[in-house]
């Protein structure tokens, strides 16, 4: 059991350069209609570095919380596209913001943010008070812009949340925080989605589609079961933003209607570790989340890895 904790701040950061489907029509044998029908994506942001985007998102979260950087005990940066092999990009972000405590990167591909969030609650359980969790990726750097199967999907962005331990009831008895989680991986699926050093992403879209739907449904169902929460009690489902068709197929199987699902990929594309917190921040910005709401977060990605969490929101 992790201690009760609240979200005191959140923030996002997107590069200023927007690439629309119309822009891609100019350079690829594709069309706006095809991209929207197959993916739900209309435009995406590209540019910047993971350190730049993560720093901006984290700064926004700190400012909203009114928390001094030095009072943060841990920074966990979920990214699958670190700016350098060494050192970990979180060290740059930690330095730029003047954070206290330690910092580490977590690479769980598109499931990375939920992995990082679970690790953050674990940090609270061993004594940290405030943990900054950031998802940030610059997938445009490892995308072949002449490959229409991947160029229309992948993009760049970052979003952050600051969680802080609080008193009161534990999450399984009405308090805020993490009720349950489910983490898993099937490393035999390596060849479905990978990128060698210096190369670009290779993807078997059809098989990923099938596995993604099943992994999302099974993992989300496991997390709900462990939390002893019925799917009808979930106020908002925040899935990984890979493809609207995957989200719709998963929601249909889980029994979650579109009005209780967060979708941001029409404006962001697939930003890997940043996608779930970007969707979360977008939902908060449009006041779709209230204190006491139960949220279901669920991600899947290369590995193939998957991760789900049930969280009771309080700010």
């Amino acid at each position: 059991m992790t201690p009760p904790a609240v979200f005191t701040g959140w923030g996002s950061a997107l590069p200023s350069t927007i690439v629309t489907n119309r822009d891609l029509e100019q350079r690829l044998d594709t069309s706006d209609a095809w991209i929207v029908e197959r993916t739900g994506i209309r435009e995406r942001h590209v540019g910047g570095t993971v350190a730049d985007l993560a720093t901006e998102a984290a700064r926004n979260a700190l400012e909203q919380a009114g928390t001094r950087p030095e009072d943060v005990d841990m920074l966990i940066l979920a990214t699958t596209t670190p700016d350098e092999t060494v050192p970990h990009t979180s060290s740059i972000v930690h330095h730029r913001l003047g954070l206290g405590g330690g910092a580490m990167d977590v690479n769980g591909a598109c499931a990375g943010f939920v992995y990082a969030l679970v690790a953050a609650y674990g940090s609270l359980a061993v004594g940290a008070r405030r943990v900054l969790v950031v998802g940030a990726d610059c997938l445009s750097r490892i995308t072949d812009w002449d490959d229409r199967s991947t160029a229309v999907i992948f993009a760049d962005g970052a979003a952050a949340v600051l969680i802080e331990a609080t008193g009161g009831a534990d999450p399984l008895h009405g308090g805020p925080g993490l009720l349950s989680h489910d983490l898993g991986i099937d490393g035999s699926a390596h060849d479905l989605l990978y990128c060698p050093h210096g190369g670009t992403l290779a993807m078997d879209g059809r098989e990923i589609f099938r596995r993604a739907v099943r992994a999302t449904v099974e993992s989300a169902t496991m997390a709900l079961s462990r939390a002893k929460v019925a799917v009808e009690e979930i106020a908002l489902f925040v899935p990984h933003q890979a493809n609207l068709r995957i989200i719709e197929a998963s929601c249909a199987r889980l029994g979650i209607p579109p009005q209780r699902t967060a979708v941001v990929l029409d404006r962001t594309g697939n930003t890997s570790a940043a996608s779930i917190p970007l969707a979360l921040c977008d939902a908060l910005g449009t006041e779709r989340i209230a204190d006491g709401d139960l949220l279901l977060l669920s991600g899947f990605g290369a590995g193939m890895s998957w991760a789900s969490a049930v969280v009771r929101w309080a700010s």
Binding site: R38, R206, F209, R210, V213, A249
Partner: peptide, 11 residues
């Protein structure tokens, strides 16, 4: 029905 519809049907 497109290729993803076929994948969903097979699932």
């Amino acid at each position: 029905a497109d290729s993803l519809d076929l994948v969903e049907l097979v699932m």
